[in-house]
Structure formats: C-alpha cells, structure tokens
Nucleic acid binder design. Structure first.
Length: 223
DNA sequence: TCAAGGATCCGCT
DNA sequence: GCGGATCCTTGAA
C-alpha cells in the first residue's frame, strides 16, 4: 500500500482501502482478507474520535504519520484495528470494521477460539466444546465481520500499535486491491456506537462499506 | 435485552 | 493520584 494514498483526506484514503487486502504473514502462518467495511475518525474536532481530548499515551500514533496501526481495547475485552491517515500533526484514522477472509481460514478460526478461551471464565454458559463447535460451524463471511472480530481473527492486540502497515516486510500490512479486480460499489452510512458524540457527528455518513458484501457487519439501511 | 470486562479519561482533591 | 463514568462490541437469552 502506497503511503501517499493514506496521507490524503481520510474519506479518500478509505476509497483506496476498501477492497484492499489485510495480510498477516509471520511465524503463525499466513492470513489474508479483503477489507469490506471501514469507519472514518477525522481530526481532533470529531467528537467521536479518540483524538477529541488531544494527544494522550493511548492515542498518540493518531497524531503521527499515516499507514501506522492503532489497536485499542474496547469494552474491556475486544481489540479494534485502525489505520492512521492524513499527514503528521492531523489526527485521523480508519477503523477496520469487517474483512472477508481469503487465506488462512483455519488459522482465523483457531485465533477466534483462542480469544474466546481468554474470556471463557466470564461466559455464564461457557462450555469449551460448545464454543469450539460454534466457531467451527461459522460461515467464512462471519469470521471477521465486526471490528472486534477482525482483531480476534488476525490475533491482534494493543501491542500491534505502531506497526507500519505500508512496509512490505511487515508481519502485518496492507496491499492494494489486485489490478484485475473490479472497483467495488461503495455505500456510505452513519457511524455505529457513537451516540455520545452528539450532532453533527452522529449524522456524518463516515461508515463506508462495499455494497452487498456478505462479510459486512451490519447492512446499511436500504440494502 | 443484557451482561461481561478493564483500560482510559475526566474532574476533583 | 484517586473515584466514577464511559466505552468505535459481542453473543446468548
């Protein structure tokens, strides 16, 4: 992925990222997925963005160069993967909300199960065998169809913050949409789970997704 | 509809 | 440097 594409205004960078590949390739094996859903968080003025309080220990990479991973913990148990966008000094990022798995399907299932294991003690009805069966039976399109599920399927946590996703040698990286693949039809919808931000931030159609893709987390209205 | 879980941030001392 | 509210979610009921 060309860093210059991610240095552009975030909504334009999103167009380059939809249909692009997320690749994790290291000692754990090789996992590849097609990015089908994103949310944009744009500037310190965006009341839904982690950057709304200015730079902190957690969000500092958002203020740095584009193409860097920002992974945070949400609700105490899920991790979310973001791609930093726009030039240094301007805090912005794209949250990867859903991916359609292409390679490393069984690796993704194993990672989903491992993450489930970590929080099993909290599950009231957590039967280990039942959980293993449930994940084994999941359709491929549901393996990474949510922001927490993307991180789980790719085995990511906060320690991945700072990884350069534009470096071809990086264990976690972005690759542009293959030349032969048709340009996807993109839908825009309001962002999810940001009611606290208030107007006009709740209204902006900054959730972008590939129309009709079965791996999208929640269908856009009208689909 | 609801609970799970812990980091993070604010506001105050 | 503490107390309390909040949170870019998920899966089972």
């Amino acid at each position: 992925m060309d860093r210059a594409l991610l240095a552009r205004p975030t909504l334009e960078a999103a167009r380059a990222l939809l249909g692009a590949r997320l690749v994790r390739d290291d000692a754990t094996g090789r996992r590849v997925g097609r990015i089908v859903e994103l949310e944009a968080y744009i500037g310190a003025e965006d009341r839904a963005s982690h950057a709304r309080f200015g730079p902190t220990a957690r969000n500092s990479v958002m203020f740095g160069p584009p193409g860097i991973a920002y992974v945070y913990l949400v609700y105490g148990m899920y991790h979310c993967l973001n791609v930093v966008t726009e030039p240094p000094g301007r805090p912005a990022a794209l949250l990867i909300r859903a991916i359609a798995p292409i390679e490393g399907i069984e690796l993704m299932r194993a990672a989903r199960l491992a993450q489930g294991r970590a929080r099993r003690r909290s599950l009231a009805t957590g039967q280990p065998e039942a959980e293993a069966r449930r994940i084994a039976a999941l359709p491929v399109a549901r393996l990474a169809s949510g922001p927490g599920l993307v991180a789980a399927a790719f085995g990511l946590d906060r320690s991945w913050t700072g990884v350069d996703l534009c470096d071809p040698a990086s264990p976690l990286r972005l690759e542009r949409r293959p030349a032969g693949e048709p340009e996807p039809t993109i839908l825009a919808a309001p962002r999810i789970g940001i009611a606290y931000a208030g107007e006009p931030w709740t209204r902006h159609p900054w959730r972008l997704l590939i129309a009709g893709d079965p791996a999208v987390s929640v269908p856009a209205r009208g689909e």
